[in-house]
Simulated scan of single mutants.
Amino acid sequence: MLNDTSVPEFILLGFPELQEFRFLLFVIFLTAYLFTFFGNALIIGISNLDVSLHTPMYFFLSNFSLLEMCYVSVTVPQLLGSFVTGSHAISFWTCITQMYFFFFFGTTEFFLLATMAYDRYLAICHPLQYPVLMDSCSCAYLALGSWVSGFLTPFLPTAFISQLSFNSSNHINHFFCDTGPLIKLATSNTFIAEVMVFLVSAVVVLVSLFLTVASYGLIVSTICRIPSASGRYKTFSTCASHLVVVIIFYGTVIFMYICPRSDQSSGMDKVVSVFYAIITPMLNPIIYTLRNKDVRKALEKACKRVKNKCLKHRGKTLVTVLTGISTHT
């Protein structure tokens, strides 16, 4: 399909009211991006290197961390570039591509969160059958299904939006190419595109939310039947980190895409977008390391191994130096 727009590029306005703090914003967003990227990379490395973490839960967590790295890389590098160069221009097809991948990774995140909730449900409610029900093949199929579903879902909304005409204003009041601000600029009939975006977003969010809530409903029911308080706490702690991430992510996205929006809410939209597109992925490594004993123990073991290797290397270096001195003497 060919687009008949006469706008060769868009201008992402970003945060025009904060232009005098451009350098400060660059430092803040760069710090958040690096922390998110390397924090999630650390979780992937620990989950794969430590044998005790070779379980379905950490397999899905590694997928989730990889997803978060991709998610922030769709928007933040372009935003950082605009702070450095002062240029906010983005070509039409680059904008459409950015919108598609943001939709792709966001949709995959919903499916992965639902899959992780289902994994916790099987582990807590069916512990004896868990190793059989969630074997390596099942884990691979569920993870692959989440990624493929996320990849296919944005095709129709993106196709409809790319066919809209944009032959008046080309200023997008956002810091990346999101569906809502882009549709607002269209001069042709946007009804089908708006309905398509709303329906796809609603189906993805509500279906995955239903599966997640159903899983946690069964989990809570099982936990309540555990006689000891310590047993209930220990069981619930295995899914507490995931539950925190679910509440934060679903809350911000439902507010952004499902709740009715007013025409004067662009400033609030940008604040909420910063939260779920940048802040939430940055919080995930913190949540999963501070609230997860297994990850903390694996990190401590990895640090000890690195420390021992450094001490061993220093010892060898010192012996070599002393040997050289004695030989010279």
Rank of each mutant, 00 (worst) to 15 (best):
S326N: 11
M196F: 00
V74G: 09
Y288H: 01
L311H: 12
L142K: 09
G180K: 01
R314L: 02
L311I: 12
V244D: 15
M99C: 13
K304E: 01
L142A: 04
G217W: 03
F37P: 02
T222G: 08
F59Q: 10
V195Q: 07
D178G: 11
A32S: 12
V271P: 04
I28T: 06
T94G: 06
S52C: 13
S91D: 02
T94M: 03
P281L: 04
M196E: 03
T329I: 06
Y130K: 00
R225A: 05
L2I: 15
T179C: 12
L185R: 04
K234L: 07
L80I: 04
A298Y: 11
H88N: 07
I90V: 14
E17Y: 15
Y58D: 12
S82D: 07
N40T: 04
I96C: 06
S265W: 06
L209H: 15
F92R: 11
F37Q: 11
A277W: 00
T289A: 07
S162W: 03
D178P: 05
D119I: 05
P154D: 00
L12I: 11
V306F: 00
F255D: 07
V244A: 15
V272F: 06
A229F: 11
F103P: 01
E109R: 04
F60S: 03
L164F: 03
D294P: 07
Y250A: 11
F10W: 07
L18W: 11
F102N: 05
L182S: 07
S47N: 10
L199F: 15
T5P: 12
N308L: 01
G81M: 15
I46F: 13
V7W: 05
N292H: 04
F35C: 09
T187D: 12
S82L: 06
V271C: 07
C139A: 09
S47V: 14
F103C: 00
Y216W: 08
S82A: 14
Q129M: 03
T107M: 05
A117M: 05
I223L: 02
V74M: 05
Y276C: 05
P157A: 03
L25D: 13
I183L: 08
S228Y: 09
C125G: 03
T5E: 09
D178M: 15
F176R: 13
I258M: 13
I287M: 14
D135W: 06
S265R: 04
F104S: 01
L67T: 03
I219H: 05
C303V: 04
H174Y: 04
W93A: 02
G106F: 05
K316C: 10
I223T: 09
P77V: 02
F35I: 07
R314D: 06
F26S: 12
L12G: 15
R296H: 05
L13Y: 15
E9F: 01
L112F: 07
S169I: 05
P77F: 01
V132I: 15
A143I: 06
V84T: 11
L25C: 13
S73M: 03
E17L: 13
F151Y: 13
Y257H: 00
